[in-house]
Design a protein around this nucleic acid. Structure first.
Lengths: 199, 199
DNA sequence: TAGATTGTTAATCGATTAACAATC
DNA sequence: TAGATTGTTAATCGATTAACAATC
């Protein structure tokens, strides 16, 4: 999951609500049921829903269809987002082929690498110019991450999803989200050791 | 990054401090410098360090070597953690081969899949029995995630790093950390749209 | 009607930031 | 000494939880 908490907490939950509702076969849904299924606090879910949708009825709940649509609108699913990915090692390939992005109207326009069957970096500028790219995904080795990042910004990319374990230096209008696998696992390890060993 | 905030915020920063200090070539380091380099608040860094280490000296700062050691001890880097991974699709392979876990004393003991060159699921029980496994990594398709999870718990695995987009049902003493790529990207997309388009 | 559920207002909790004293 | 830095105490801020009124 996202490592930082530099965004409103509610944003981390909405995609989970959406995924749950996509598979929910009924006309109405209550905050109570959602909370139980997702192991969230009941009041928290109710507040989340109230913030984003309207029309929940006492004793009945929300219409699944309307709630789902409101949640998707809030998250911007109806607006296509274009991305490019740079660095087609194993992780880059895994992301490139990942099916789970489909519902989000995210289109990976190009996948770049120096060496293989993907788009060559020579074409980076021209591909960015002919498509308006919103998000750049960085999956190169850490030595090259800053250079790739600079190139992305030079080509009007607005946000960066960074899998390289480095702190990128960017102008402050650029949004960076760091996804650091080693850090995530380190945290889980720490929590596990605390719970099961010392203390 | 980790998506949930169901752990102390400081835990998300310590691995970043460690990685920074590993590459810092000097004897002393101050909270001020760390904060500037990592784009954190100065006071926050000072508080983090004070919580975990001792011996920072006014005007001088901390000894890099001692601070680094204290941070690593706190995170449990000195204690070997054993993991298994189930589901060797592209993402499973990427994680299995990922170099970044090395410094954390995490050992991936086995990698399971039904179909290919990795360990076969038939051997799951026996491998878990002869090694004491701390963490199970789930990278199977979502349809199989709960079954894999159940099997892990049955074999005394204590914590689960779950990449499948499902809410796992586990006894409450088991630690689950969800890593949902689609959710992460959805959040970044939302933040980007908010900043650059509507509003 | 009684009970489930929504929605709102107040309280709590934790994390971050601000202010400042201590120290090398 | 003066200034940089630590460490502490108080204030702020945001998110979650609790309490409760409204409603179908």
């Amino acid at each position: 999951m996202l490592q930082n908490g530099n965004y409103e907490a509610i944003l981390g939950r909405i995609p989970t609500y959406i995924a749950f509702l996509e598979n929910y076969k009924d006309i109405y849904i209550s905050a109570t049921i959602i909370a139980n299924e997702l192991n969230y606090g009941e009041v928290m879910v109710r507040k989340d829903l109230a913030k984003i949708s309207v029309g929940g009825r006492p004793k009945i709940g929300y219409t699944v269809e309307k709630l789902l649509n409101d949640l998707k609108t809030y998250m911007g699913y109806h607006h296509e987002t274009r991305a490019v990915i740079v660095g087609m090692g194993r992780l880059g390939e895994a992301l490139y082929h990942y099916k789970g992005f489909k519902p989000y109207h995210i289109k990976v326009v190009a996948a770049f690498d120096m060496h293989n069957k993907y788009d060559h970096m020579d074409q980076f500028e021209s591909i960015c110019k002919s498509n308006q790219i919103d998000i750049g995904i960085i999956t190169v080795p850490k030595e090259h991450a800053q250079a790739v990042c600079d190139l992305m910004i030079k080509n009007q990319i607005k946000a960066i999803w960074n899998f390289a374990p480095v702190v990128l230096d960017v102008p402050k209008h650029i949004i960076v989200q760091n996804e650091n696998m080693a850090n995530s696992l380190a945290i889980l390890t720490k929590l596990t050791n605390d719970r099961w060993h010392e203390s």
